[in-house]
Every structure is written in structure tokens, then in C-alpha cells.
Amino acid sequence: MATFTKLTSRYVVLDRNDVDTDQIIPARFLKVTTKEGLERHLFADWRWDEAGLPREGFPLDAEEARGAAILVAGDNFGCGSSREHAPWALLSFGFRAIVARSFADIFCANALKNGLVPVVVDAEMHAAILASRASEPRASLTVDLAAEEVTLEGATAQRFSVDPFARHCLLSGLDELGYLLSHEKEIAAHEAARRT
């Protein structure tokens, strides 16, 4: 079971809105039957050129991005398909939190189930994070899930919120399927009442 409490890390800025799941991992890489090994395909068409070399200027392979566990993006991150391969690819690359102005619903749910924390910040905080990165390439962010606070190094914290149950699962290591299975009696009662 994925867990998450608090993370301080440098961050990668992908200052784009509506980053869709086809960019996060193009569909041609979905012919797999496991969750592992998807990091090579993360942002594949933005990241690699025709020769398979890193494209200049794409932030994932910048020197200061090395080891960063937080990705910062714009509005509506993760729109498009329901593929859980998107959070799997982000996680296997090394990301543990995504900071954005908003998220698409299915991506947000998929991310939380895998311990990738979606952090919504307002426009002001978002601008501060980008500005800080411009002046200090090694600036860091702290994502504290227990306190539901995100802090830009040397600045004030901002509150964020995630689904309370998902948060509880990540903090305590509670297994969601285990929780569902523990309601066998209620499930059976529902089925009996509706003759389904």
C-alpha cells in the first residue's frame, strides 16, 4: 500500500495547461501488462527527439531536475483518458507529488491511489513557485500531507486539500480494497434487497 507523509524536494516546472494523459504517456506505450518500467515513456513525445535523445529545453532532463520528486504544472493537469499508466509513469520516474492550479478528476483519483499526491495551489502561489524557480534553480517545495500544507522554501505555507479518505489511506497505510472487502455484509444486503 502506498504511503505518504511529508516530502521536501526540488521541483520541475512544466508550465503548461491541459497537459493530457496522451502527453504524459502516449497510447502506443500502453501495450503492457504490468505497472513497471514506464518511466522511459513519460512525456515521450515532448522529451525525446527523432533520434531518441533528450530535446533541448524540455525541463525533465535539465540538470537541476535531477532527483526532483515534485512536478509543477498549470491548469487541468491529467485531462483525457483514464489510463492509470499516467501516474505509474510519473511515479516510476521518481515524482511523488504534482503541484498544479487544477487537476482532471480521473487523474486525481488514480494518482492518490498510487501515492502520487495532487496539490492544488492558487494562481498567486503558482506564480511564486515559478518565479522562485527562475531566480533559484535549486529552490525546493515541501508537501506536508498530514498538515495539508505546501510550502515554498523561504515563503509562507499554503493550505491544500485532498480527498480526506485518500489522505487517511496514504497517512496510515490503509488499503482501500481491504476497506471495501470489509463491507461484504452491506454488499450482500444491497444485492439481496435489489435481487441483483
Partner: peptide
């Protein structure tokens, strides 16, 4: 509605999911 693979597993196992 569409769901991710973790929820596919949940529904296969319990015929239920958590949905706000």
C-alpha cells in the same frame, strides 16, 4: 463513468467503488 485500473480491481473484487 471511467475509472483507473486500481478501481477496476476494486470493482472486480467487490462490485463496488468509493465515489464522492
Amino acid at each position: 463513468f471511467g475509472i483507473g485500473t486500481s478501481e477496476v480491481e476494486n470493482v472486480l473484487a467487490t462490485q463496488c467503488l468509493l465515489a464522492t
